[in-house]
């Protein structure tokens, strides 16, 4: 048997000669080519809906008011000399940073509370707490406007029960700024909550058990186990929320329309006012692009940090 097999193997085998593939066929078979073709639809969408409008906005911001001449960075220089715009920068930063910090803290607190209630009740609470995030913001902001509005303010009515004098929620600068932040936090905190809840659930129970045995108190468990394990998700949600909050438009537009006296404008609402309502599209584009370099730099460092941590701890 064995010798037969040897003989059979030793016999020359003449295979039919295959036609060599053409360069085009070779290219089409390459994995990189297939990968490129498969991602082409996504690249087209990103190109058409992100890259092109962004590039066009940059181009617009370098034109004069009539969009007939290239004026370089003059729109930005004019804006920086404008008191109202300097106030918009300050207000946007104050609004975005305060709102994001509050959303992160409240979201984390809610997530922590939800994480520690039994799973059956958790589903109901999770659903209810997500409601603000599901309602279209323009609509829910209208509801808030009613609650803040001096003539019908239900909040003031509640305060009156406790003998607190009525608050000019939308009529006075600081109250208006606070109102805008309250609505943004109310709308955005559920997003943080759901992200942090997912992150909390992904922390292995055994790390907490190990920490318990190592002698950690509740606070130390949070400080040395929970927060470090959630650092990536905290970074990404804060970054994402910072970008979205800086670009927030609808809440300011519906609630205060930038008032009183343009004191609650943020970049997006001011860009709309300058670009669309005042008809200066290039300057409006310059307003909307103003924070882009700073946010891009922040995003770069945050994402690099996340990448490094992922490599280091595999989380």
């Amino acid at each position: 048997m064995a010798s037969d097999a040897t003989i059979a193997h030793a016999a020359p085998v003449i295979a039919p000669r295959a036609t060599p593939p053409t360069t085009l066929q070779k290219m089409a078979r390459r994995r990189s080519t297939i990968a490129f073709l498969l991602t082409l639809p996504l690249l087209a969408v990103i190109g058409g809906l992100v890259a092109w409008p962004a590039a066009y906005a940059i181009y617009l911001s370098t034109l004069n008011r009539r969009m007939t001449a290239f004026i370089g960075l003059e729109n930005y220089a004019i804006l920086l000399e404008n008191d109202t715009f300097r106030m918009v920068i300050w207000q946007s930063c104050f609004f975005a940073i305060t709102a994001v910090i509050l959303k992160a803290l409240i979201g984390f607190w809610l997530a922590h509370m939800l994480h520690h209630i039994p799973s059956k009740g958790q589903r109901v609470w999770r659903g209810m707490l997500l409601v603000p995030w599901v309602i279209p913001p323009a609509l829910s902001t209208l509801g808030w406007w009613w609650m803040f509005e001096p003539s019908y303010s239900s909040i003031n009515w509640l305060l009156a029960i406790f003998s607190v004098p009525p608050v000019p929620w939308l009529g006075e600068m600081w109250w208006a700024r606070i109102s805008v932040i309250i609505v943004n936090v109310w709308y955005g905190a559920p997003f943080f909550m759901i992200m942090y809840l997912a992150a909390l659930k992904s922390v292995p129970d055994q790390l907490y058990e190990a920490a318990d045995i190592d002698g950690a108190t509740g606070w130390q468990r949070l400080r040395y186990v929970t927060l470090p394990m959630m650092r990536n998700i905290i970074s990404i949600t804060v970054l994402f929320s910072l970008i979205v909050t800086f670009a927030n438009y609808d809440i300011v537009r519906v609630l205060t329309n930038g008032g009183p006296r343009d004191l609650t404008h943020v970049f997006a609402s001011y860009a709309f006012q300058v670009g669309v309502l005042s008809g200066n599209i290039p300057r409006g584009a310059a307003v909307s692009l103003f924070m882009f370099p700073l946010l891009a730099v922040i995003a770069f460092f945050v994402l690099r940090g996340i990448n490094e941590r992922t490599k280091e701890i595999g989380a």
């Binding site: 292995p204 058990e209 394990m229």
Partner: peptide
């Protein structure tokens, strides 16, 4: 612990 439970960070 069975799966070590080392703090990854």
């Amino acid at each position: 612990f069975q799966n070590y439970a080392l703090y990854p960070h």
